Simulated scan of single mutants.
Amino acid sequence: MYALDALKTMKVGEVLQIIADCPQSFQSVPEEAVKHGYELITDPVKDGQDIYFYIKVIA
Rank of each mutant, 00 (worst) to 15 (best):
L40G: 03
V45W: 03
I19W: 02
L16M: 15
I41A: 03
F26T: 03
Q17P: 04
T42H: 08
P30S: 00
G48I: 12
S28H: 13
Q17F: 11
I55Y: 10
F53C: 08
Q27T: 11
S25C: 14
D21M: 01
K46L: 01
A20Q: 12
E31A: 04
I41S: 05
L40F: 12
G48L: 12
P23N: 05
A33Q: 06
H36Y: 12
I18M: 09
P30V: 02
G48C: 13
F26P: 00
E31M: 05
I19S: 06
F26L: 05
G37H: 13
D47G: 08
P30H: 01
D21H: 09
Y54D: 12
I55K: 04
Y54T: 15
K35L: 07
T42I: 11
P30Y: 00
E32Y: 10
Q27E: 14
P30E: 01
G37T: 11
K46A: 00
G37I: 09
D50H: 05
C22D: 15
P23K: 02
Y52K: 04
A33S: 05
Y38V: 03
D50A: 07
S28K: 14
Q49E: 15
S28A: 11
P44F: 04
K35Q: 03
A20M: 09
T42Y: 04
A20D: 15
L16S: 13
Y38C: 02
V29I: 15
V15T: 15
S28N: 13
Y54Q: 14
C22F: 09
S25A: 12
K35S: 07
Q24W: 13
Y54L: 10
A20S: 15
T42D: 14
V15F: 04
I55C: 08
A33Y: 07
D21C: 01
Q49H: 13
I19E: 11
Q27S: 10
H36M: 07
K35M: 05
C22K: 12
E39V: 04
T42Q: 12
G37N: 08
Y52W: 14
Q27F: 09
I55L: 05
